[in-house]
Simulated scan of single mutants.
Amino acid sequence: MGSQAEQRVGIVTGASSGMGLALTRHFIGKGWKIAMFDINDKVGNELVQELGPATSFHKVDVASYDSQAAGFLSVFEQHGRIDALLANAGIVDRSSLYILGHRANQVEDIPPAPDTLCTDVDFKGVLYGTQLAVHFMRHNPPALGGGAGEAAGNDQVKGRIVCTASVAGIVPHPSYPEYNGAKAGVVTFIRGVAGVLKVKEQIHINCVCPGIVATSIIPPEMVAAVQPEYMTAVDTVVRGYEEFLDEKDQRFGVVVEASVDEVLEVSEGRLANGKASEPAVTVWDPLFKMLHGEGSGLKNAIP
């Protein structure tokens, strides 16, 4: 029987291309079993034939909770556990919020509603995946859900979640207003849930924010317009994931920027009025219990 590292099971979303495919290839090479989630079943099934028995393909629309749930259940039934969710799937804006082409409209000629698929995939897909990961990771066998770091005396980790956001979720890109909001939502979401997931579930959630990477969602002309020394290597993004998924890594709620060839932690912003504003974002445990059914378990919670 192989080592625990060789037995680890991960789900990669958006796995059929770009950074998702790079993550899939990398962790297969590290001895993982990888379940590939993507809507492109033709490419996905071809990749499974290429990558071999350590992979499986599941046609999943991450914007659909039911679709993700069916995928998670299939993986758990196949392997008996899920050690990591690599929530990588993402797209950019599918319509223009600026509605510049509608300047000539009469006041009663309302522009069409924006296409919010970017929010559904990039933000809601992460929320859905996180909730499902929590559910299934609760059922991981204790001996296999952790790793070498836990055996050395650290708290046992039942599972790990790493999400792909973007540097545009930290400093916005005017070309992609919806994408900015969705990725900023992911950054704030993981920071907000990380403490509770660590204390209540022994699940670590973190976030990688890539710079500009030459993938299919970036027009090649835009890639060509960027100075080569400012392009982010896919390997840098993969390294950010690898560091978070290392069995000895004990971080949670951490955001890193994967830029060019550097993986750098990004500090959380501070409110301008300091301690006077802190109570507004500090857990009051009676409210937490009212909303979630039990206390938060956070040390800094107001009783």
Results as ranks from 00 to 15, higher is better:
residue 155 D to H: 13
residue 190 I to G: 09
residue 89 A to H: 02
residue 70 A to E: 13
residue 219 P to K: 04
residue 298 L to D: 06
residue 233 A to F: 00
residue 136 F to A: 04
residue 29 G to W: 10
residue 72 F to G: 04
residue 289 K to P: 02
residue 89 A to L: 04
residue 68 Q to F: 12
residue 69 A to F: 10
residue 231 M to P: 11
residue 208 V to R: 02
residue 167 V to W: 14
residue 62 V to P: 04
residue 147 G to I: 00
residue 268 E to T: 14
residue 136 F to N: 05
residue 263 V to Q: 04
residue 99 I to P: 08
residue 51 L to G: 03
residue 16 S to E: 13
residue 244 F to H: 04
residue 56 S to K: 13
residue 27 F to C: 01
residue 70 A to W: 12
residue 68 Q to G: 10
residue 149 G to E: 05
residue 151 A to Q: 15
residue 51 L to R: 13
residue 171 V to F: 15
residue 30 K to D: 11
residue 205 I to F: 03
residue 204 H to Q: 08
residue 141 P to F: 06
residue 71 G to T: 09
residue 179 Y to P: 12
residue 246 D to I: 00
residue 266 V to S: 09
residue 185 G to C: 07
residue 165 A to S: 07
residue 54 A to I: 00
residue 229 E to Y: 15
residue 168 A to P: 08
residue 235 D to M: 00
residue 233 A to Q: 11
residue 11 I to C: 02
residue 57 F to Y: 03
residue 129 G to S: 02
residue 230 Y to F: 14
residue 302 I to G: 07
residue 80 G to C: 02
residue 234 V to T: 15
residue 281 V to L: 09
residue 13 T to I: 01
residue 138 R to G: 08
residue 73 L to K: 15
residue 144 L to A: 08
residue 25 R to A: 07
residue 45 N to G: 05
residue 250 Q to N: 13
residue 58 H to R: 11
residue 252 F to S: 14
residue 240 G to S: 08
residue 120 D to S: 15
residue 33 K to C: 14
residue 62 V to M: 03
residue 58 H to P: 06
residue 194 A to H: 11
residue 205 I to L: 03
residue 245 L to M: 00
residue 106 Q to T: 12
residue 44 G to Q: 00
residue 124 K to P: 11
residue 138 R to C: 07
residue 267 S to P: 12
residue 128 Y to I: 00
residue 83 D to G: 05
residue 83 D to K: 01
residue 132 L to Q: 07
residue 86 L to T: 05
residue 223 V to I: 13
residue 202 Q to C: 00
residue 48 V to K: 15
residue 61 D to M: 05
residue 39 I to A: 08
residue 94 R to N: 15
residue 253 G to P: 09
